[in-house]
């Protein structure tokens, strides 16, 4: 389990990173914490010609907070979120999500942006950022652009990033004081990739309610039908749970998120959605 050979370059600036990544015949990959790429290199699933190490770029480590939210540089690691070094504008959701990602040793190296860009369909950050209505700042040979988190991952291990583009920062909007959230991750052992992961954010003051779902076989999705039910709910009841479960099932089937004949998978995703909603509505 040793990687195939590759070249390596340390990028000292964003411009240099973009320039390096645009070369190598499209066979270059950015390296941040390497916690997702490292295993794929060792398994020889990933065989890039060139790795461009982003870690020397100081601006990617920056975090800035304003009254509308927080901007998290691409090199910020999970444990910085977990420990509250990154201002938490989400009433604890970001910290909860961070603390459930893999293990502390991985969280100390792995980055929020790197995890998103790796686009494992069961990754932890995609449903969180989608439910929060976050966006990603992207820079590349054609300049800068902003991509909504819910439009970022298109398929498992695939994003909208063009060759040479990298995520520069993640912008997370601030939840209002009355906002409530739910986060339910089902996995075999703590730290595993999720078998199913649902995130519910209900922010009536901002007239926002979003429900996102992630799992191992399909890109994460938003469940608008469930979000509608959660937005209108005034409390928790068994009847509401049933309604949400049905709505989740409908959304999951419509998106082709799980094999509709796989009753176990369908049920697990719907159940996890219900549990996240219950947390949001019971807080």
């Amino acid at each position: 389990m040793k990687p195939a050979p590759f070249d390596y370059a340390r990028a000292e600036s964003l411009d240099e990173a973009v320039r390096l990544l645009s070369g190598a015949d499209g066979d270059a990959r950015p390296l941040a914490g390497g916690q997702s790429l490292g295993p794929m290199l060792n398994l020889r699933i990933a065989r890039p010609a060139l790795l461009v190490d982003l870690s020397p770029i100081a601006e990617l480590r920056e975090v800035s907070e304003d009254e509308d939210g927080v901007t998290i540089g691409a090199s910020v690691v999970h444990s910085a979120v977990e420990d509250g070094e990154v201002p938490d504008v989400t009433g604890g959701l970001m910290r909860r999500a961070a603390s459930g990602i893999a293990y502390r040793a991985v969280r100390n190296r792995g980055t929020v942006a790197g995890s998103l860009a790796h686009a494992d369909p069961a990754g932890d950050w995609a449903p969180v950022t989608m439910a929060l209505g976050a966006s990603l700042g992207v820079t590349g040979p054609e300049g800068r652009r902003t991509v909504a988190a819910d439009a970022f991952i298109t398929d498992p291990l695939t994003t909208v990033l063009e060759p040479g583009e990298i995520v520069e920062a993640i912008r997370v909007p601030r939840l209002s004081g009355t906002a409530r959230w739910g986060h339910y991750k089902l996995c075999v052992k703590p730290g595993d990739f999720a078998e199913s992961l649902a995130v519910v954010v209900r922010d009536p003051d901002r007239d926002r309610c979003r429900v996102a779902l992630a799992g191992p076989t399909h890109a994460p999705i938003l469940l608008d039908g469930v979000a509608g039910l959660v937005a209108e709910a005034s409390g928790w009841s068994d009847a509401l749970a049933d309604e949400i479960k049905d709505a989740a099932g409908g959304g999951i089937a419509a998106a082709g998120f799980a094999d509709a004949d796989d009753r176990y998978a369908m049920n697990v995703h719907a159940t996890v959605t219900v549990r996240a909603a219950r947390e949001a509505l019971s807080r």
Binding site: G34, G38, P39, A105, N108
Partner: peptide, 22 residues
């Protein structure tokens, strides 16, 4: 591949996986 933890060392005083760190 970063799961089992046997290779864990301290990197800048924090635990890290040395098998998936170049």
């Amino acid at each position: 591949h970063g799961v089992c933890g046997a290779c864990t060392i301290m990197l800048d005083d924090r635990p890290a996986r040395s098998c998936i760190t170049l």
